[in-house]
Design a protein around this nucleic acid. Structure first.
Lengths: 243, 243
DNA sequence: AAGCCTCGGATCGTATACAAACTGTGCTAA
DNA sequence: TTAGCACAGTTTGTATACGATCCGAGGCTT
């Protein structure tokens, strides 16, 4: 592990369409990892040369990685302006969670029907890792693992289309959380994951769906979306923030 | 309209993450259009130089367009092998329609709540255009317009995340239809679109959802997925087919 | 003093050159 | 005759050079 992101996700939610070159894929993963665990906050510029210098890659490679990230909505690219870590609006945040609330309960139900013992064991390991990270005060890692948990469930459901949707939604949620998360103490509702595992292990698809729905509703509830709604509109406020 | 695809979609389901360069976006649209209306069948190789020669673009541009297409699952890229029009398997076909069946009814319901008169008028125009194309025996155009119809509903619903998912699913469906469509006569069940418009116009969200669900089930029903299921597995069968 | 303009640095857009990889063909040897 | 191999042609992978664009700084004008 010589890379700067030594402790990136273990589940390695593999990108939907594998980048052709291994180098581009590597840069892609590094940047994604940095965004996921909030080392790169929303809005951070990602100049091609600079990124390339960091990872020892040429602009060609970096460009390919950035384009891939932009297709997933984690990076936004403006023509002639370059790439930056995406900065989801309140409306986007709502839309993402709305989509999660439709898709993930269904995915959880399917996962409950198909999960075998090894799957459950893996989920337990992930949850423990998340728990450990939380206890160690490693919030960055905890948030990444929490996302992995959702991705793993999608993987267990064995429906690749949904899995890729969930993957994208989870990644974007990470960005949203870093912008709009309200209660820093109640971190990511780990107990919800435990209950979910139980439902999955016992094959109760209906309950799994219900728990997932509640879990996501809970996450959404932890967001502070209403009051900032008008904030970015006011230029005065933005200037005040700068001074 | 000097382009070879003069009659591409009018709704122009704009790509999710706009390609940075206008040239790349143009190549992207041309290829996508050609895939959508089945001029480029699944499996067709897309060598960078060749595509570039056709559109008078350099490989850099073509590459960017192909990568974008591959992120949407319409083109598959294998490292060192290049790009080809995707060739969805039976399993993928099922997965895509399963996803549509979850997402689109919900989208239709939302659209029913939000549709204004102009929206309904647009849908009617699209349906008529589809109808005309069908009467003129222009199946290529009809299939594109049919996809546009679904995209428009998603646009009306005003939920960008769902809209982009629908867009991707619709595009992939076009590929699936060209491979697995069984009954060539009953083309795309236009009456279903008419009923849907009525439900949307009268704001009956529940009925819109139900109609959409049935419509997609109907599409799925028109696919010939079962018998080919085992075919690609057996090498002997494949060889037998060749002779 | 405020607004406008020009210029310079930084960054992106694109083409292209060269290297690496893969495919298929034809030759050679068993 | 057939298996293996070497080589040539084609296509992709990558770096880089050069031009275009954008943004901000500083000076100039009013």
């Amino acid at each position: 592990m010589t890379s700067p992101v030594g402790r990136a996700s273990t589940t390695v939610a593999t990108e939907r369409a594998p980048l052709r070159s291994a180098r581009a894929a590597s840069v892609y993963r590094e940047i994604l990892g940095a965004i996921l665990d909030h080392r790169l906050p929303p809005g951070t510029r990602l100049p091609e040369d600079e990124v390339g210098a960091v990872y020892g890659a040429s602009r060609t490679i970096v460009r390919s990685a950035l384009e891939a990230l932009s297709h997933e909505g984690v990076v936004s690219i403006e023509p002639n302006r370059g790439a930056a870590v995406a900065h989801p609006t309140v409306a986007e945040a709502r839309a993402v969670f709305e989509a999660r609330q439709l898709i993930e309960p269904r995915v959880a139900a399917t996962a409950a029907e198909r999960a075998v013992e090894a799957d459950i064991a893996m989920l337990r390991r992930q949850m423990e890792a998340e728990h450990d990270a939380l206890h160690a005060g490693d919030h960055r890692r905890a948030i990444v693992l929490s996302g992995d948990f959702h991705n793993s469930i999608a993987a267990i459901a064995g429906q690749p289309v949904f899995a890729s949707f969930v993957r994208e939604l989870v990644v974007r949620s990470s960005l949203i959380l870093s912008l709009y998360w309200r209660r820093r103490e109640a971190t990511c509702a780990t107990p919800a994951h435990g209950a979910l595992i139980t439902a999955l292990a016992t094959g109760r698809s209906g309950e799994a769906a219900r728990l997932m729905d509640e879990h996501i509703a809970d996450l959404l509830d932890g967001l502070d979306l209403s009051e900032r709604e008008t904030r970015p509109v006011s230029l005065a406020d933005m200037l005040a923030l700068r001074r």
